[in-house]
């Protein structure tokens, strides 16, 4: 979890937002993309865990759910992530026969995955509140 905090905050902290004002709109848009990409990297795996939740989810449905929320730009990047989550014991897979005949692979959270998600949710609540407060408090200083 600490790794997440360090990782998620470092890119934004190193590239202060006032760059937007000094470097122009185009640069600002590029920076927005960079910030949003870096933030996504830090939280995506927990969003995957949250999407699976207490249920059994099919890969395509996880991908669609995350993309609809704007958390996944390329759905294909989900699969390396799911593979890693499974290797790390946060999700597990099971096979179920489908009407089409080919068995389908479903993802569920392990106990470790549920605990990891709960821990993240707790940290995220405090973290996001702190970031929001900080951004609000510095708004007055930005032209």
């Amino acid at each position: 979890m600490l790794e997440f905090c360090v990782y998620a905050t470092a890119p934004t902290a190193q590239k202060p937002l006032h760059d937007c004002a000094t470097q122009g709109t185009v640069h600002c848009m590029v920076l927005n993309d960079t910030v949003s990409t870096n933030l996504r990297k830090g939280v995506l795996e927990y969003c995957v865990l949250a999407t699976i939740g207490d249920g059994e989810m099919y890969g395509l449905d996880i991908a669609n759910g995350l993309q609809n929320r704007g958390l996944l730009t390329s759905e294909g990047t989900l699969y390396p992530l799911l593979a890693r989550l499974r290797r790390n014991g946060l999700v597990e897979t099971s096979w179920q026969e489908s009407a089409q005949g080919a068995p389908r692979r479903y993802y569920t959270l392990t106990d470790t995955g549920s605990a990891s998600l709960a821990a993240f949710a707790s940290v995220w609540e405090t973290f996001s509140a702190s970031v929001s407060d900080t951004l609000k408090s510095t708004t007055g200083g930005t032209p």
């Binding site: 990297k41 993309q67 294909g76 990047t77 790390n88």
Partner: peptide, 25 residues
């Protein structure tokens, strides 16, 4: 197109390894 380019997927692999909790284990 929704899945992204093969390069995107390979980059996603690198990204998912950057947090140090996984990678080529």
């Amino acid at each position: 197109a929704g899945l992204g380019s093969p390069d995107d997927i390979a980059a996603g692999l690198a990204g998912s390894d950057m947090d140090g909790s996984g990678g080529h284990d």
